[in-house]
Amino acid sequence: MAGLPRFLAGRLIKAIVILFAIVVINFLLVHAAPGDPAMVMAGEAGAADPKFVEQLRQQFGLDRPLLEQLATYVSHVATGDLGFSYRQQQSVWDLLLARLPATLVLTLTAFVFALVVGIVLGTLAAVRAGSVSDSAITVLALLAYATPIYWVGLMLMLLFSVQLGWLPAFGYETVGGGLSGFARMIDIGEHLLLPALTLGMFYMAVYARMTRASILEVRDMDFVKTARAKGLSHGAVVVRHVLRNAILPVITVAGVQAGHLIGGSILIETVFAWPGLGRLAFEAVLQRDYQVLLGIFFISSVMVIVFNILTDLIYSLVDPRIDLAR
């Protein structure tokens, strides 16, 4: 694996370029927004006290030429200074860090659920193409694809928490439960179940449809005919030759989209009062706290990039045609 460090270096450079571009976008957004940039940064025009606004003006050199302001802004971000939330009286960076773990737990669970169940369902549908179970899976995927996830979240909550009382309706864990260790993990798991299911459902549908289409496509390829001509049984042909080739493209796309789960988590965390970045984003929207919003935009972009690098790595380990040193 001599190519691995070089591959990582290449991806890292690319990631830095993208991050820089996102910082520039953030900067431009603040300046393109209607009104005084200092006011925008302070959030909720007029609510911030003049002293704080003046301090912002100083800190970001808002009376300097635009390019100089950009340089100041970039250097602030580079040193981990994403600004200060006047509303929350806390640095944005601290706010984000406090909320990050909850979001990671939620999105990762949802992603694994979506990928595993999606691929399994898609495979089942493709192998029995044309059968009742294929139609059922196809319809299910179509529905999941069309349903607004926040609404499903509400409906599931209504059913499982309000009507049946099986699962907690919101939160990360039972408040004041005083649980620790394994019991606490079970408690968090119970709280996690509904939000993760809801968040993963849309992407599960996406991956199921993709897997099905991919398998049907690979099944018609020449090398599958070769495998059948060897005298392999139908099942062996599917498992040994079709599946691996069919799932590879699904994983690539999944990796690219994994980051988008973070977008969905804004909605799900709002519905289930999950104390992560999404919930923070909703609060920031309500309070027009733009510094926090832009911070969330920045950190979720970082998460997407990390996801992409990880899937690239997995992909290049699985597919012999990808030469890491390339």
Binding site: F223, T226, R228, L232, V318
Partner: peptide, 19 residues
């Protein structure tokens, strides 16, 4: 199939499993 009767196809570029 593949035991007593075997077959060679037209397109060698696509007839083998790439993975």
């Amino acid at each position: 199939r593949g035991g007593r009767i075997a077959m060679v196809f037209q397109e060698p570029m696509t007839a083998l499993n790439p993975l």
